[in-house]
Amino acid sequence: MTYKQIKWMILLIPTFTVGVWEYIRHQFLLPYISMELGNWLTPLIVYLVSMTLLNKMFRMLEHIQKELEVERNATTVLEAREQLAKELHDGIAQSLFLLSVKVDRLEEHVVDKDRHLHDVQQIRKTVHEVNRYVRQAIADLKYEPMEEKSILSHESMESKLKKMVVDTPVQFSVNWSIPDSMLSPKEKVELLACVREAVVNIEKHSGATHGWIVGEGDPHRFKVMIKDDGRGFVDNPFMFKDRFGLNIMKERAEEMNWKMEFRRDHLYTAVELMKEGEGK
């Protein structure tokens, strides 16, 4: 029942109730019910109808109003997030990209200056990392939805991961069994960043058709694996200084005291992040 229909029902039901009661009273009940008793019964019947049927309709009306208020608040917040995302994209992200291009050109014109090249390499790494952070923030601002009951509630990790890979050309399967209560806010942020980096590498470099994100653990430890069926790698990918994404992911894992493994078997390439329990 729509909002408008409920309002009309609230207005019309008492009127029809009194009309029907008065018609029945005067046509059929006058020999049995006195005028004074009938006058007392009329407001009693209206009261009973109001406490039963109308009370239910008022609750329905309040529920619809709450839903509309939540939707209105969510729309306002999303519009603000979209605007902020646009400003980030048009300003900071493009400026960082331009700075990265300029550093690339600077490196091309430097010959036999190891120290200078090292400094340039560090600048490139910093620019790349900040640029990735900004783009991650843009993606979160644009696409992180609000819960229906409260615009301040948070999505589960599994939901965020599924949303992360929904538009990728590689088909990903997500099998996540780590309860959100097991992870601290810091761990959630770092895990999402690492998984996003692994997904981007799979999308850009692996030539894979299918990928898997698997998370499992107990209250003391967990293991997260990102696997694909792509072409894999030949040498140690961490040996190359220009592999900024993988090295940043490795640094994130080290800062969190996680163990990170990057391995290849005959068919699959896998990155594993492991948090060992106490005493391990």
Rank of each mutant, 00 (worst) to 15 (best):
Y32N: 02
V111P: 02
M35Q: 11
L183E: 03
G245T: 00
V165E: 03
V271K: 06
E87H: 10
H210C: 06
M182F: 15
H210F: 06
I123R: 09
V195G: 04
I248Q: 11
D229C: 06
E278L: 10
L96T: 01
L12A: 15
D167R: 11
F172G: 12
Y47G: 10
L11H: 07
I45F: 09
E147Q: 15
N55G: 11
S34E: 10
Q122M: 10
V214G: 00
Q27C: 02
M146W: 10
P237S: 08
K125Q: 13
L84S: 03
K113D: 15
E67L: 15
F97H: 08
T17V: 13
L98I: 05
R105S: 11
H205N: 09
F244M: 01
E276G: 01
K4I: 02
Y3E: 06
P43Y: 08
A139H: 13
V77E: 14
Q136C: 06
R263Q: 02
F238H: 13
E197C: 00
S153Q: 15
L191I: 13
S173C: 04
E62G: 02
G91S: 09
G215P: 04
P169N: 08
F233I: 04
M274N: 04
E144A: 05
V134C: 02
V20D: 01
V166F: 09
L141T: 09
E62T: 12
R105V: 05
T209I: 02
R221P: 05
I226Y: 03
F262D: 03
D218E: 13
K204Y: 03
L44K: 10
L141Q: 01
G215Y: 02
E254Y: 07
R135W: 14
M60L: 15
V18M: 13
P219T: 10
E272T: 14
E79S: 08
K188D: 04
R124L: 09
V166M: 11
K250A: 12
R243W: 00
N73P: 00
V120P: 04
L141D: 01
F262E: 01
S95P: 07
I248E: 09
V166C: 02
L152I: 11
